[in-house]
Every structure is written in structure tokens, then in C-alpha cells.
Write a protein that binds this DNA or RNA. Structure first.
Lengths: 125, 125
DNA sequence: CTGTATCCGAGAGGATACTG
DNA sequence: CAGTATCCTCTCGGATACAG
């Protein structure tokens, strides 16, 4: 690191810019939610179906945090039954290359990761 | 998502390749550790100093998981006092673009994130 | 110096029921 | 449909002490 980032006063509580990004899209669900929003606006229950295993509660919480950071926009249609649409803001779009890289890396390397872990497992025993 | 990823049997427990990547570099510390290893081999206490706020315990745990996934190599020198060096494997290097993007995104956008959160805060009250 | 071993608290995350 | 409201579990992560 040395003087790589000299003037980081604005980072505040973060000692490293990577940490700051983790704070925005970290956690178990956020990056996956953003991923599913890459190809367009989605309704709440659509997202719930796409993010397999997520509970309503967690989906709500994660969406609220993404909204607070300005990554996700929430559009409420006052109807009965209610309709709420989630989409990426322009700001959120700036994360697209990151998320796509994560997707591609996962696709290309997950097998190897699983192999490595098994090998490591047997070496430990 | 539709048929974007049709043949994902190998993903196993993961319903989405992004999730798989999160499993490797997710959590509070892993991506920051990898970041600090980008510019070369580091000893345990060097990493401890660079990752401000991390405890010995957490550093050990996270390094072990990264090692198990094949991202980090651990070289032990049997001396007194002991010396252990950590470095990225070639496989781990494949994460470099991702980590650098996270670093740059954090540098460029953290101010805006903090602004957004404050704005959102006041709107809620 | 590079770790383990405990113990502990906070919060992430889950299950279920209920509501406008 | 899109959430809240509870309640609960369990893991992440921190503090401290000890060891090779």
C-alpha cells in the first residue's frame, strides 16, 4: 500500500477503499440482488423468486440498504394489490462491471475452488 | 436471468455464480486481505498491521479459508522465531481485476454513498 | 513471531404469523 | 402483493490469555 492512497481523509471510518466498497455491496445477498437487477426493473416477488432461499424479511432489509446507498431505486404504485418496482439507479449501474466480473469469475473458477477445498480438506486429515 | 446460465449443475449449492464468488472473497476481511497481498508477499504481522482493526484470530481464520480455496499460499520457515509468508497464488491473481475495481470504485464513489445515506436518513425522519 | 484456545456479545440471518 | 412484527438461532467477529 505505501503511499498508494495518500489522501484518504474522506474515507472516514474506512482504512482502505476496498473496505468501503464491501460496505456497499457486501453481505450474503446484496451483490446477488444487484446482479438480478442488471437486466432490468423487477418487482418484489420477482426478486424473491430469483434470489433463491432469501426470506421476505432479508430481501426487504437488503433492498432498503441498497436504496439508502443510492444503488437501487424504489418505485411505488399505489394500487390494490400494491405494486413496487425496483431498479438500478444510474449510480448503481456503475457497479455493473464489478458484478459481471464476479459472475464470470464464479462461472469460470468455481469448480477449481471446490477442488482446492477438497484437496485441502484431505491434507488436513 | 432467463436462460443466461443454463448449465449450472456444477454450481452445486449455489443458485447463482455471483453467490459463488461471494463465498470465496465475501465477509468483512477477505477482499481487503487479498488487496494487501496484491503488491507482494507479506508476513503475518505485516498483514495484521495493514488490515487495521483485525484481530489475530480473524486474520488467521480468513487466511486459512483463502488458503483452502487456493487463493493464498502459505510458506512456513522453520526458524526461531517463526516466520510465515503469505502470497497470492496464480489462481488468486485472477482476482486482481476484481479487487482493483473495488478499490477504484471505493475511491471514486464513497463520498457519494455517504451523501446518499445522509440524505436518505433525513428523508426518513 | 505466529499462532491456538476460550469465552463472549452483537448482529446477521431465518421462521412464522399477521396486515394494508 | 409487498411488506411488518416477533421471536429465535447461530455464526461472525472481538477480547484476552496462553503456547511453540
Amino acid at each position: 500500500m505505501n503511499e498508494k492512497e495518500s489522501n484518504l481523509a474522506f474515507l472516514g471510518r474506512y482504512s482502505c477503499p476496498v473496505e468501503a466498497t464491501v460496505d456497499v455491496i457486501g453481505g450474503k445477498w446484496k451483490s446477488v440482488i444487484v446482479y438480478h437487477l442488471l437486466d432490468g426493473t423487477k418487482r418484489f416477488n420477482e426478486l424473491k423468486r430469483l434470489n433463491k432461499g432469501i426470506t421476505q424479511r432479508m430481501l426487504t432489509l437488503q433492498l432498503r440498504e441498497l436504496e439508502a446507498s443510492g444503488i437501487v431505486h424504489r418505485e411505488i404504485y399505489r394500487q390494490i394489490p400494491p405494486k413496487v418496482e425496483y431498479s438500478l439507479t444510474e449510480f448503481g449501474r456503475s457497479l455493473e462491471p464489478l458484478i459481471l466480473f464476479m459472475r464470470n469469475w464464479g462461472l469460470e473458477n468455481m469448480e477449481k475452488v471446490l477442488e482446492n477445498r477438497e484437496k485441502h480438506e484431505t491434507n488436513q486429515s
